[in-house]
């Protein structure tokens, strides 16, 4: 198994690692039993623009790299744009992932959507999108 240079770059120099104290949306997906957990923090302004985004991830190299790339892809974009981010876009941006690691990118997509759902709930907006739960039923 070999990772692309982009994956290794994001693994060794992850962008946007950390927490946001007063986040507008927080999403946690995955579980320790399966070996990966991603936590996404979003700071969103009054125009629905994601002004800041941070993550913490427990997981393999691909899990860390996909989290990092996902934050880069949504930072500075609107909530509507972030909702359109697919796992395959994350994989593409990383110049591909080994087939067994594609689930990490699914987790990154889920983490963002879960954080956005949290934001919707906080501001009283109905959650009108679905979140695929890749780890459901595995506990």
């Amino acid at each position: 198994m070999k990772y692309s240079e982009k994956v290794m770059d994001h693994f060794t120099h992850p962008r946007n690692v950390g927490e946001i104290e007063d986040a507008d949306g927080v999403g946690v997906v995955g579980n320790a039993k399966c070996g990966d957990i991603m936590k996404m923090y979003l700071k969103i302004d009054e125009n629905d623009v994601i002004v800041d985004c941070k993550f913490k991830t427990f997981g393999c190299g691909a899990a860390i790299a996909t989290s990092s790339m996902a934050t880069e892809l949504i930072k500075g974009h609107t909530v509507q744009e972030a909702l359109k981010l697919t796992n395959s876009a994350v994989v593409e941006a990383l110049d591909g992932l080994p087939p067994v690691k594609v689930h990490c990118s699914v987790l990154a997509e889920e983490a963002i959507k879960t954080a956005l759902a949290d934001y919707y709930k906080k501001i009283g907006r109905p959650v009108d999108f679905e979140i695929e739960k890749s780890h459901e039923g595995e506990e």
Partner: peptide, 23 residues
């Protein structure tokens, strides 16, 4: 923490090891 991340960093440092992680 998860084993594969350790292996990748160890590899960068020039140390070859292995893990029982699922990843």
């Amino acid at each position: 923490i998860e084993g594969e991340g350790m292996l990748l960093w160890l590899d960068i440092a020039g140390i070859a090891a292995s893990t029982g992680s699922a990843c």
